Amino acid sequence: MAMLATSSASSKDTVERLRKELRQWERPTSEVPQHDAISTGIAVLDDVLPDSGIGAGEIVEWQTERGGAWLLTMLQLRAVLTARSAGMAVVIDDAKTFSPVAAMLLGVDLDRLIIVRSKSANQAVWVMEQCLRCSGVVAVCGRLGAISETSARRLKLAARTGGGVGLFFRDESRNRQRTGSWSDIRWRVEPVAVSSNLNDFQNAVAGRRLRVELVSCRTGRAGKTVEIDICDETGLVREAPRVAPATGQESFPLSNRRRQTRSFQRTG
């Protein structure tokens, strides 16, 4: 079950409690793998990245104005936990909107999850930095607003020190302030309306289509955009068809799990 840390006590007491909980997972920094690529959890997105994934100690940012970033962040978190068999993940929930049940349904291992509910956005950034510095943490996930260049650099340094990855999503509809590109990898996510004459989903509620753009990455190879279909019933993902199905082509009923398995790739 996910562990929950609140901010009812002082910040010092909270940090000390987290350190005790994470101590059993700590390992020497020299043992942290620095070069093995970690999948995004979605094969078509791995193909876009130069190293077919993300590296240990890197910061990944998901931006959106109309939704979808949280879901992809959770799929990435699941992939990190799968790739790193030892260590805990920390979710910073300053808005108090994180649902452990929803994360579990997407395949996130709650036994390796610590949820921290901070009092403010500023405190959330401070907690992110402290957790990223801990070698027992494989991933830190949370919502980011506008932060200073100094705070951004401190987050990057903390991730390099601890060897875990920072997975942050930013809701641009709530924060219009322009921010610089400081993340190692930055994605932009937009929902895409599926025309009713396309046979991809018979039930619009059970599936969604997202357009994902690689805005920037450490090697400068950016600008590529892909569209993916996500089945909310099963958590399976596929690259969206580039053309409409031909007349008479077999439909894709979401209730038929065998057909889903052929049409979708698992995200893990």
Rank of each mutant, 00 (worst) to 15 (best):
C217K: 03
R242M: 04
V194P: 08
A222T: 12
E213Y: 02
D200M: 00
E213K: 15
T247Y: 14
V237P: 09
W187P: 06
A240L: 04
I230A: 00
A206L: 11
T225W: 01
S216M: 06
R257Y: 10
Q202R: 05
V226C: 01
A246T: 03
G248N: 12
N256E: 14
A244P: 07
F201Y: 10
T219R: 09
R186C: 07
V212K: 05
P191I: 14
P241T: 01
N199F: 00
E213V: 14
S263C: 10
G248C: 14
R238Y: 07
V226F: 02
G223T: 02
N199M: 13
R188P: 07
P245S: 08
V205D: 12
G248H: 11
S251V: 15
K224C: 09
V212F: 03
R262T: 15
C231G: 02
S251E: 13
R257N: 10
R259G: 09
A222R: 05
E213Q: 07
R262F: 08
G235M: 04
T234E: 04
R208E: 15
N199P: 01
R258L: 07
R262E: 15
N199W: 02
R238A: 04
R238K: 04
E233M: 12
V226K: 03
E227R: 09
R257H: 13
L214D: 04
A244D: 11
V189L: 02
T219Y: 14
P245H: 10
S251K: 06
P245F: 15
A240Q: 00
R221Q: 13
A246P: 11
V192I: 05
S263P: 01
Q249M: 14
L198T: 04
S255A: 14
T225Y: 00
G220R: 07
L214R: 01
D232H: 14
S216I: 06
E190V: 11
R242E: 12
T247M: 13
F201M: 09
R258P: 01
Q260S: 08
A193C: 06
R211W: 04
R211L: 10
C217R: 02
V226R: 11
P191Y: 06
R258G: 03
A206E: 06
Q202K: 05
D232F: 05
T234P: 04
I228H: 02
E233C: 02
A240N: 00
N199A: 01
S255L: 12
R188T: 11
E213M: 13
G220A: 01
A246C: 13
P253K: 00
R262C: 15
I230F: 11
V212N: 11
P245M: 09
R218H: 05
E213T: 15
E190Y: 06
I230H: 03
R258V: 09
F252M: 15
R211N: 03
L236R: 07
I185G: 03
N197W: 06
K224M: 08
T219D: 06
R209D: 00
Q202V: 08
A246F: 02
P241M: 06
A240I: 03
R208D: 00
A244S: 14
S251G: 15
Q202T: 14
R188I: 05
V192W: 02
P241H: 04
A222L: 04
T234C: 15
